[in-house]
Amino acid sequence: MKPKYTIAVTGLNNTDNPGPGVPVIRALREAKEFDVRIIGLAYENLEPGIYMENTADKVYQIPYPSTGSDELMQRIEYINSKEDIDVLIPNFDAELFTFMMSERKLKEMGIQTFLPTIKQFEERHKSELPEYGKKYGLDIPFSKAITNLSDINNIQYEFEYPVLVKGKFYDAYLAYNPAQVTEFFNKISVKWGVPVIIQQFIRGTEVNVVALGDGKGNTIGVVPMRKQYITDKGKAWGGITLGDENLIKITKNLIEKTKWRGGMELEIIKTHTDKYYIIEINPRIPAWVYLAVGAGQNIPEALVKLALGEKPEAFKSYDIGKMFIRYSYDLIGDISQFEKLSLTGEL
């Protein structure tokens, strides 16, 4: 008989800018080697995953990480006392830090996680990427974090136009000359503060990779994908798995050198001369992870096994040419569900 695990999952916001929670749950429900009871953890009362059928068995609201890790852990402790959680999978960028620093507390409650270390998390920040590239021997486009406009003159001979002018967290503009850099610098620094990152623009095709590292340097799963259509928010609407061996090599190399622990998504630009530049490293499973499941690699299932201390075998292959197409769907709820969740924080 298959064992049954209770798994708590965040990121139930399956909206037009989706979180990975619902696809992760879907993958876990299809796990070959265990059954699951899913505890959805929601920050907001209209996250679609709360109301979707065959998704979460039970949903609890949790306080935002901005309230403080103590408050969040108290809530998790309460939920755990009712549900006896085996594994917790956080899926939001903004909550990762808090869960990472609470790893030990969770473990004491008997809840396993499988997250990157704080060091792994910190050193791949956008403004740190060039250092990261140097340290691990990866191709990163020339980029420099600048804190004031005069710095642009100091680095003008180090790159060629056009360049991307990027904010610390969000926003990116393409600039063709110093005047535009100045304009975008001002625009971004007002909104997101400094530093502003100047990154060499690389012409080519953007490809993405979802991967899972076991924390010892081994790659358990890796599937590359190209977005076929993106929404005006820059999110994938459709995508297709690729058979590019180089992408797999790059990912395995990165995981080996950094001893990456947990899920990750790489954003890579492939140039017309077949060079590969890493432009971003996201320290979690992406929302399109179900494509990897459909192509033969149930990465969330393997992640749960790693979290439980098992040693899952690395996936050896995946189907090339598998596609995903996102769609929207109106499900019907009732004010009474909303009432219950809003007033009791449970549904």
Binding site: I335, F338, E339, S342, L343, T344
Partner: peptide, 17 residues
């Protein structure tokens, strides 16, 4: 107003506690 202190205003669609 429900027993739990939940108020739904059908005129505006707003909910209150």
């Amino acid at each position: 107003v429900s027993e739990t202190g939940f108020l739904f205003d059908p005129n505006s669609g707003e909910s209150f506690s």
